[in-house]
């Protein structure tokens, strides 16, 4: 039996650790107050929207100011959740290089470009999935990523980036 922390037990085999089973899986999440986004839109207008969101994202968030703010807040949460998955050291990818794409049927996916795509490629991230939600005052998103075997930078980068806000 290993001395490593174990959370999975089996009656038919040795106890295995999470790392041994799911080393290629990453998750990121973020929570954004809708009011904060509404205030940013009101204060900075197109400068705020244009620096953070793509044309597609803006086109998907139409309606009353509160509806727009809720949609944008959920998308910001998705971008930040993806940043947590990317675990950048130092330079942050352009917010617009992480785009929430909405399928006509309603579900969403992420499209990475530019620096975000490069970071994902360097870290062996092969697939990402996103889920967005907003209810009342809060919006949230979860991003799950699958990494290829032999991920090279992730662990060292994560160690170097430890600290600051919870991730």
């Amino acid at each position: 039996m290993t001395d490593a922390p174990s959370v999975l037990s089996s009656t038919t085999g040795p106890i295995r650790t999470v790392d041994e089973n799911f080393c290629g899986l990453r998750v990121g999440t973020d929570l954004v107050p809708v009011e904060h986004v509404a205030a940013s839109v009101a204060r900075f207008g197109h400068r705020y929207v244009g620096r953070i969101y793509t044309e597609h994202e803006v086109a998907c968030c139409q309606g009353s100011p509160s509806v727009v703010a809720a949609g944008l807040a959920a998308r910001f949460a998705a971008k930040e959740a993806m940043v947590k998955v990317l675990r950048p050291v130092g330079h942050q990818p352009d917010w617009r290089s992480i785009e929430v794409r909405r399928d006509p049927a309603g579900w969403c996916s992420l499209a990475l470009s530019g620096e975000a795509a490069r970071m994902a490629d360097e870290q062996g991230i092969r697939e990402v999935a996103v889920s967005l939600t907003h209810e009342g005052a809060m919006a949230a998103a979860v991003v799950v990523a699958l990494c290829a075997e032999g991920d090279t930078h992730a662990d060292a980068d994560a160690d170097a980036d430890a600290g600051h806000e919870e991730r």
Binding site: H36, Y48, I52, H164
Partner: peptide, 15 residues
């Protein structure tokens, strides 16, 4: 950030 500034707030600070 340790004091509680979020990424979204830092965007507003930048602007």
């Amino acid at each position: 950030y340790e004091a509680g500034m979020t990424s979204h707030a830092s965007v507003n600070v930048m602007l």
